[in-house]
């Protein structure tokens, strides 16, 4: 009874419209078919964008995991007093508008930004190098956007490692590499899965970062969707992209749930 208004609201304003949108690609010329999907993947540009999105998602999640482990390990081992502060600084960016967060990269990577000023100033190049509107720019922007999610997940996972597990393993003769693969990794698997899914899904479905830092030169699925709708009124492509994004997000989410429940 009490949950009904919320459920009805979510259904009407969210579920039903999204379902209709998703069905659009299956309904070509009044009959059900997969033609929309065939057409979509027939275009080389679409395939490039699809693979680029997947690639960037995996790269960002992977890099975030590596940096995340290092940073989380350092944070967990800090004395309690500094730890709260450092953790706060990691969380802080999440509260700030992604537009602001991404805009900073224009200042850094732009023609008159820090990096180019340094390059020209050091005489490495006579003219500014193009750094914006590259995959690298998008990668950096996404990484900065979502790295905190990975660190948070890993810190909370590492807090559950018994205090003496690592010293105990060291005393038993394990090298640091062995400690990581035999103690830390198995005990933080769940956190890695949560963080990985959040970062991967986030990178996949981010709009602002590819829009600002990639522009039309480095399209990702979200920016492609926006372009197809706005420029060409192409709702079939939009429907296909929507389905791809949802399927990818849900599969990541399912993997997360499966792995998390398999452990308990």
């Amino acid at each position: 009874m009490l949950a009904l208004p919320a459920a009805v609201f979510a259904c009407l304003l969210f579920l039903v419209p999204v379902m209709i949108l998703l069905s659009e690609a299956f309904r070509m010329d009044g009959s059900w078919s997969l033609q929309g999907y065939v057409d979509f993947f027939a275009k080389p540009l679409n395939r490039t964008v699809f693979l680029r999105t997947l690639k960037l998602g995996v790269l960002v999640a992977g890099t975030a995991a590596i940096i995340g482990y290092a940073a989380a390990f350092c944070i967990v081992n800090l004395p309690a007093r500094t730890r709260g502060g450092v953790f706060g600084l990691v969380v802080l960016p999440l509260m700030i508008s992604p537009v602001a967060r991404t805009y900073a990269w224009i200042v850094i990577l732009g023609r008159t930004g820090i990096v180019n000023n340094a390059i020209v100033g050091l005489g490495l190049s006579d003219t500014p190098v193009r750094l914006l509107f590259t995959e690298t720019a998008v990668f950096l922007g996404l990484l900065q956007l979502f790295l905190p999610l990975m660190i948070i997940s890993l810190v909370s996972a590492m807090e559950n490692i018994p205090r003496d597990a690592i010293p105990a393993a060291r005393v038993l003769g394990a090298s640091w590499v062995q400690v990581f693969f035999r103690i830390i990794l198995p005990l933080t698997k769940e956190g890695l899965v949560v963080g990985g899914t959040l970062v991967f899904t986030g990178a996949l479905t981010a709009y602002i970062t590819p829009a600002i830092l990639g522009g039309s030169k480095v399209l990702m699925l979200e920016t492609l969707l926006y372009q197809r709708v706005n420029v060409a009124n192409d709702f079939v492509s939009a429907s296909v992209i929507a389905m791809i994004l949802i399927v990818m997000s849900f599969s990541a989410n399912l993997v997360l749930k499966r792995l998390a429940s398999a452990r308990t």
């Binding site: 969210f14 949108l21 994004l245």
Partner: peptide, 20 residues
């Protein structure tokens, strides 16, 4: 159902709402 809007990418929600 109530949690779904968090999982589905925002741009899709926006487009679907607009169109239908």
């Amino acid at each position: 159902i109530v949690a779904a809007p968090i999982i589905v990418p925002g741009i899709i929600v926006g487009l679907a709402l607009l169109r239908y």
